[in-house]
């Protein structure tokens, strides 16, 4: 199985990256962002209590959104630039 075509490129930042143990991860393709969140929370239970939004290909998802193979999905905690 070719990794690139069938996986999601998961990128995480801030406290989420610390929890996941790194900024970048391959994750098996899932149907949509709600399912991905459920899988992530199952794997990292502390994620349930952390505030974050999901961005698919650099667009923040408002509700739920399908995920295409090879998509870049980012987990973004509240911003604190400036």
């Amino acid at each position: 199985m070719k990794e690139k075509d069938t996986d999601i490129q998961l990128v995480a930042f801030g406290m989420i990256a610390e929890l996941l143990g790194g900024q970048e991860k391959q994750w098996p393709l899932t149907r949509d962002t709600d399912q991905l969140k459920a899988e992530l929370i199952a794997a990292f239970p502390e994620l349930k209590d952390l505030p974050f939004v999901v961005a698919v290909n650099m667009e923040v998802v408002q509700n739920n959104q399908p995920i295409a193979p090879g998509a870049q999905v980012a987990l973004l905690p509240p911003y604190s630039g400036g």
Partner: peptide
């Protein structure tokens, strides 16, 4: 511009 940077730009400070 400063308010938009604070609210919309994905930067994190620890």
């Amino acid at each position: 511009i400063v308010e938009m940077i604070k609210a919309d730009v994905p930067i994190w400070g620890k």
